[in-house]
Every structure is written in structure tokens, then in C-alpha cells.
Amino acid sequence: MTKVNPDFIKKVATSEEFNATACINCGVCTAVCPMDVELLPRKLFRYALLGLEGKVLENTNVIYQCLLCKMCEENCTADVHIAENVRFLRSYISKEVFKL
């Protein structure tokens, strides 16, 4: 059971730089991802949208595993800026966790 953190939603999910709300959950992104990691990027973004900060941070590794190669984005049917979203999550972690 993971608790929803409304502050995380405000900081991430509804931030202008994070646009995964358009996601229709089709899963093409995950299917074409060369990393072959179940979480990338669909499920990861879903965690972010739901405000599950714990789940997102638990998967910091996966967030940095993304190649930013945009294969997913090229195939995204909903025009989600996937690479930019991943970068945004990294920037959140850099600031909030790594304090860089």
C-alpha cells in the first residue's frame, strides 16, 4: 500500500514540464523501449501522476536508466514528451534527493 502525496502531485504531475496526463496507457512506449524494463516509461509516469512519491523514488535507478533515446516518443500516439518527462523527474530527484 502506497500513500498518495498531494504535494508531489502539485510539484510533478501538474507541473507544466511534465505532461503525462495525455497518456492513454497504450503501452507502445514500453514495448519499443530498448531497455526492456517493465516500469519504463508508462508505469513510472503513472506513479508520478498518482502522486505516489514513494514509488517514484524507490525506482530512482530506473529513472536514470532511461537512454533519452526517444524511441518511445517517436511512437507515442498521445504526443507525450516522454524524454522531457524523464529529465524532469531526474531534475526533481537532483534537487529534492541529491540536493545538487
Binding site: Y64, L68, R87, F88, L89, R90, S91, Y92, I93, S94, K95, L100
Partner: peptide, 9 residues
């Protein structure tokens, strides 16, 4: 730095 999301740097 950009790719890793270290925006300030």
C-alpha cells in the same frame, strides 16, 4: 548535466 536533470549546473 542536462540529461541527468541537474538543471542549475
Amino acid at each position: 548535466a542536462y540529461d541527468l536533470g541537474v538543471d542549475d549546473a
